[in-house]
């Protein structure tokens, strides 16, 4: 805690949202976004997930410590802690599994450029690479090896591109956190609507950009 934190705490304009709550909200938002977006979203690289994992680990240790004593009063607290822990872990698990589903489906696409690779965490990248290699080897040993050598690749982009990419133009629902301009690419017209905060807009394209009004 440095001087900024102290100042922020006494500042009445800072409606002190504690770090834990901010983390939970960020995790929830990441999960909702990942579940709804057609493409893989960038992995939070600022140590966010490491922090969350550490917190979970610490909480599990606390549960293990607390299961020892049978005092009915702390017993209830234990139930609450375990319930919350399970909810939290569900969020984390579902988030990771949603990402895994996207990586599985479009592995070659996400491995194709450095920019797309950067969206994955180290573990996800290792998984995608190894999984893809295993799959390719399996194809090779079962049928691809009897093909002519120039047809044995899986990422042939001459003619129709073999690498399947997620449909970036599909429609999404967007919830706005504040007044902002929502732009989208429509069929007949590109459009920009000044959205009000907390309204929900339906957008015909994934790669929208938001500007401050």
């Amino acid at each position: 805690m440095d001087i900024d934190d102290i100042l922020r705490e006494v500042d009445p304009t800072f409606h002190s949202v504690p770090l834990e709550k901010r983390d939970l909200q960020e995790l929830t938002r990441a999960w909702v976004a990942e579940r709804s977006a057609p493409e893989l979203l960038p992995w939070p690289s600022n140590g966010f997930f490491e922090r969350i994992n550490d917190n979970i680990k610490r909480q599990i240790e606390r549960v293990e410590d607390m299961t020892g004593d049978m005092d009915p009063k702390t017993n209830f607290a234990l139930i609450v802690i375990q319930t919350e822990l399970e909810r939290y872990r569900y969020l984390v698990r579902s988030y990771l599994r949603a990402r895994l589903a996207k990586i599985d489906r479009h592995a070659l696409h996400y491995l194709s450029t450095d920019e797309l690779r950067a969206r994955m965490s180290d573990v996800e990248l290792a998984y995608a690479t190894r999984h893809q290699a295993l799959l390719h080897n399996h194809y090779l040993s079962s049928f691809l090896s009897s093909f002519p050598p120039n047809l044995q690749n899986l990422n042939d982009s001459a003619g129709i591109n073999m690498v399947e990419a997620p449909d970036l133009d599909s429609a999404v629902f967007v919830r706005l956190l504040r007044d902002t301009l929502v732009t989208a690419k429509g069929v007949e017209d590109d459009n920009a609507v000044k959205g009000m905060e907390i309204s929900v807009a339906l957008i015909d394209v994934e790669s929208h950009d938001t500007h401050d009004p």
Binding site: A184, G186, S199, A201
Partner: peptide
């Protein structure tokens, strides 16, 4: 006639969505 690309659904609840 959804040509514009954006439709505002202000006020709609999560479950309805």
């Amino acid at each position: 006639s959804f040509g514009g690309g954006v439709m505002s659904l202000r006020g709609v609840g999560a479950m309805e969505l």
